[in-house]
Design a protein around this nucleic acid. Sequence first.
DNA 1: AATGAATGAGTGTTCATTCAT
DNA 2: CATGAATGAACACTCATTCAT
Lengths: 227, 227, 227, 227
Amino acid sequence: MDKQDKHKSICRKRKEREKKQRIQSILDAAKKVFASKGYLKSTMDEIAMAAEITKPTIYLYFKSKDDLILSLMQPLIDDSRSRLEIVEKELLSGAIKNGRDLVTGIFQAFYHGYEILPETFRVVQLFQQKDLICELRPEIRATLDENGRGNIDLCRRMLARGIEMELIKPVNVYEMVDVIWALIVGVIQLEDCKGDEQKDHRLKKKTLDLAQRLIVEALTRNAEQVI
Amino acid sequence: MDKQDKHKSICRKRKEREKKQRIQSILDAAKKVFASKGYLKSTMDEIAMAAEITKPTIYLYFKSKDDLILSLMQPLIDDSRSRLEIVEKELLSGAIKNGRDLVTGIFQAFYHGYEILPETFRVVQLFQQKDLICELRPEIRATLDENGRGNIDLCRRMLARGIEMELIKPVNVYEMVDVIWALIVGVIQLEDCKGDEQKDHRLKKKTLDLAQRLIVEALTRNAEQVI
Amino acid sequence: MDKQDKHKSICRKRKEREKKQRIQSILDAAKKVFASKGYLKSTMDEIAMAAEITKPTIYLYFKSKDDLILSLMQPLIDDSRSRLEIVEKELLSGAIKNGRDLVTGIFQAFYHGYEILPETFRVVQLFQQKDLICELRPEIRATLDENGRGNIDLCRRMLARGIEMELIKPVNVYEMVDVIWALIVGVIQLEDCKGDEQKDHRLKKKTLDLAQRLIVEALTRNAEQVI
Amino acid sequence: MDKQDKHKSICRKRKEREKKQRIQSILDAAKKVFASKGYLKSTMDEIAMAAEITKPTIYLYFKSKDDLILSLMQPLIDDSRSRLEIVEKELLSGAIKNGRDLVTGIFQAFYHGYEILPETFRVVQLFQQKDLICELRPEIRATLDENGRGNIDLCRRMLARGIEMELIKPVNVYEMVDVIWALIVGVIQLEDCKGDEQKDHRLKKKTLDLAQRLIVEALTRNAEQVI
DNA sequence: AATGAATGAGTGTTCATTCAT
DNA sequence: CATGAATGAACACTCATTCAT
């Protein structure tokens, strides 16, 4: 029976691998559809079609449409988190020596999600909006809040440390983090709805770059001058 | 017959007044509903209910759901426009003597809409989003675009003039206007969905104030130093 | 007080005259609208608009949409009736001497309604259709049936007399009247929906003429040959 | 695995059979409802009810109300077409030797649709009417026009050939086809709305027979006399 | 595991009809 | 007499979700 056990084990692994692939392909499809039509206007049928499966199959892996979008957002939040943690390490280790690098680091950590997963990022934005948030089931909303808050908190700690170290000007870190995040989301959102679909990616990037430069400028001038 | 004519005239006036009130009450109801649930999730029935009338009555005064939201947004766009025009006059007349006043003026013109009509402003934000814009009938979308674009254009002209006059640092005015608008919308959006409905208004204001100060700082430092 | 009575009487007459005019203008409007869009697709609003009055005013003179269309059909039925009666008189007085004149007379009596009131005629056709008939209130339907049946009966009597007099070939008069009426209605209906609105009136007339000639031919040949 | 494959194949066939049955049951229900209330007055809910399913289920099989009625009419148009083609073959092969057989053949080809599918035929009649035709989506209307016109054209060619061969009297074939079609539709329509639902089928048939005999008479007498 | 089939609960919009003035 | 305002009842069509197989 040893042989059979092995066989079973191999089978199980294959199954799990396939399951993960299936889940991923659904997420990819959902990402594409949500990004192009918005959460509310997207239908489960469209997502199923894009994933080249049938609708009920989605429900095998995701409890609901809400669950689907939450699952999409998690990795992006995680990506930001790990990037922020790298910046934090650099800050604590002294690798970051000026305000410009700190602010840019934070900016880029948030922004990175958009660069690598522009479609998913747009999905996250959707939840910046009251009406959509309200749509979510409370439990899902809570999970989301908790994870998102983690990033925000980390950010605040870094800015506070930056102020302590006189890398940046003293500001209210609670408000400051909000301003950075709002700026990124706002710009991407604005550029998204301006450009008729294809619009040059670089133009969006340019506006965001200006936004980043302005924030860096505003936060660091004094501090740098001190140095 | 003089008396009768008078009577008729008075009656007509009353009717007109009542009609305006009815229209306003529908707009108020729509504003409330749209603001709390978003455009797509709001139903004509809910709006009717909020206005304490029945659904078909809405259609006596507004051609469609689109028409309703357009009618809501117009006054807000108009308000920004008139405020921006005041700033422009001050700029051209020399009443504005530094970058701070110019940038603050523009900021406040955009922001004022939110201060006087916070719920409606949220409605305007909704249209910052691709999927919602696409939902509108082309004619309505065109009207909206035209009006909104007017404000943006005016803003660009002012910033360009400010740069010419060396009130603010030289930046790409196209991008700059976008950054300002994105920042305002982004912050309000973020704060809106953070606060559970009632959250203190002043906190939102504080974040926006920080945002404004940062932009002023970033745009003026050099210029002011020149002086 | 004699004077006042006179005055009153004059007033009453004017009122009645105006009332008739008003009723007629509503009927004219309804005729136009029904003819162009069909009974079901026509709205009371459109009719009111066409009559340059308001919707509730229609209800002052007509109990319902049904009543309106019935009122439209009556004069047409009456017109056919009086024309048929003329033909009958000619037949009985011996003025009609051959089958051609008899059949043509009947044909023209039915058809005359279309020539003088093409729009109203189309309205009558509408009621050739089961679904529309079913829509009518039973009372209205009864009135209609009774009046229409009168014409049909008269027709049958004439055809029977024509057969007796050997002006036309012996046929079942019940069926024959149906065939004539069906042919007229069918042709007008067909040509109506073929021509894109404006199509030359004469083309419709030509097809109807052919139909009439064929019927005359079929009913008289034998008889005439006998002569 | 041979056994399993067989099983699957059988299952698939059953499914297909059931699907066809479902589609047919919807068509049957629609036919009944349309025939009794007319296209415009019939609702998807009624059709669903008649088919003993729910409304959305209809939309699984038919894109729209238009699609439903088009699907109903197509087989009838096809039936006429194939019957007309048989007559054409007989005409060209010389199997048809006189006008009576030609005209009767054409008449019967059109009429056959009514004999086999009386309710559906009534549906086709509905489209004889301006207002209903205009209601259809352009694409559907085009399909319908094209198919219907094909039959009419074929008919014209046959009549023209009949005239050439001196089987029937020389008439304008364009008008002639219209007269035939108008007569059939007109009679069926008239008899339909006369008889309170159940009326003996044979009575309708008798009127149509008279109509057919008259047309034959009118078109052939001369020609036959020539012989 | 996967799916074909089905549906309950909405959606925006329309319209004949009524009523207070 | 005339009407401005209002509405109950529909209606075509949609969609997230479920269930039997």
